[in-house]
Design a protein around this nucleic acid. Structure first.
Lengths: 220, 220
DNA sequence: ATGACAATCGCACGTTCGTGGTATATTAAA
DNA sequence: TTTAATATACCACGAACGTGCGATTGTCAT
């Protein structure tokens, strides 16, 4: 499987954090059987790994479970990344809900695999993060795109005119009516009128309400 | 390469939108050589494809370029998805900037390949979308995670107390000071004081400013 | 036990906002 | 050509806000 001479020379350092003894041993063995990779430490909890990371040289890759006793894997990611930003975190878990996937990737994970991945896939994923990729199980990649498409929601159309949108944008920056008027070389009264119309269209009756709505519904 | 009996039976319908004649012919040939796949239509522009889509039966997959004459691929995605939500859009382009990737995936693309992908990869990607996956070139997957980690920015800590955060949350819902006071069974003056302190901590001096900051920096 | 912080409550004053009106010029559609 | 929509401008008044001063109480660590 592995015939990359670079890998064989470098002997990449990998840590494993996994509370299930059996799975930990399996993965550990798998990595150490792979030329060019070495699972130098295997932990049951993030806490143990963190304390060692502060004294020892950090690994290139951490294989990280999410459902752990004590600190969760998600929380762990941030800690690891703070200590060693260059270490790649590869999530290896049973959880595939949007929430966990989203949080893990936001926290800085470099990849996300489900535990049903084959040994080949797991080793391949480690190689992929090492070469700058972002390995994901098929289902996870799909979820990621799902999250994306929900990210930019139906751009609700309240029928704001161009001028009104422009004024809404300025309002969001925190300007008062008078300041907006100055900025656009308009009379205070004109801005006042526009605001009134904006409020009617957005069904609000305060600046705060308009701003909140603007953010929540991507009107900015 | 392809030995999936399901694919051979079904003969999946694929459309191609690509303005480069040479590349269009190449991909067209590639698909038609693949058992179980048929490139039934190849277009130069989104406009042509859209008009045909309104009369003919839509394909299972559209291979879509982004840099097209007339309507861009990104704009096209939304149109296609509106006409036929179940059609998978697979982006095949030279553009790999965050902006385009982000927009395409938000618009509802099911995958994103770079044009330097090998024929095998392209066919593999089509199979992957058909089986519910989300194929991405390695670089693209990496960019996607990059976008994610920038999504949840440094949760700036302004040292708000629990009470202050609570009041900030209520403020965002559009309540007045008096309404917030009622909600929390506090005096108007107490809320007023808390707001003053919030303003100092957030370096703002209006409700609007506080709300904007709350949204922009995820303080909610 | 002293000090720092958080949470609560109070008042006064000037500023800004929200809303009820009215009105004109321009432009685009019917 | 009439109509509708948009952008512009004005006024007045009460409500809400922002900010300057206070103050008391409790908690928690030093």
């Amino acid at each position: 499987m592995i015939k990359n001479s670079e890998l064989e020379k470098e002997n990449f350092n990998i840590w494993l954090i996994e509370d299930n003894l059996h799975f930990r041993r399996t993965i550990n063995g798998l990595i150490n059987q792979t030329p060019g990779m070495k699972c130098s430490n295997a932990f049951e909890t993030c806490e143990e790994a963190i304390s060692l990371m502060e004294t020892e040289f950090p690994p290139q890759v951490i294989l990280l479970d999410i459902g752990l006793p004590g600190m969760t894997g998600i929380e762990g990611i941030e800690k690891f990344k703070k200590i060693s930003p260059s270490t790649h975190i590869l999530i290896l878990t049973i959880y595939d809900d949007n929430e966990k996937v989203f949080d893990a990737l936001c926290a800085g994970a470099s990849g996300y695999l489900l535990k049903d991945s084959s040994p080949d896939k797991i080793i391949g994923a480690i190689e992929e993060v090492l070469s700058g990729g972002a390995p994901m199980s098929m289902q996870i990649a799909h979820k990621v795109l799902e999250i994306f498409s929900n990210l930019k929601p139906k751009k609700n159309d309240y029928g704001l005119t161009d001028r009104e949108s422009e004024i809404l944008k300025l309002m969001v920056t925190g300007l008062t009516k008078q300041q907006i008027a100055d900025q656009l070389f308009l009379s205070f009264h004109t801005v006042n009128t526009h605001l009134k119309n904006i409020y009617v269209k957005l069904h609000v009756n305060t600046k705060s309400g308009a701003i909140t709505k603007a953010f929540k519904e991507n009107l900015i």
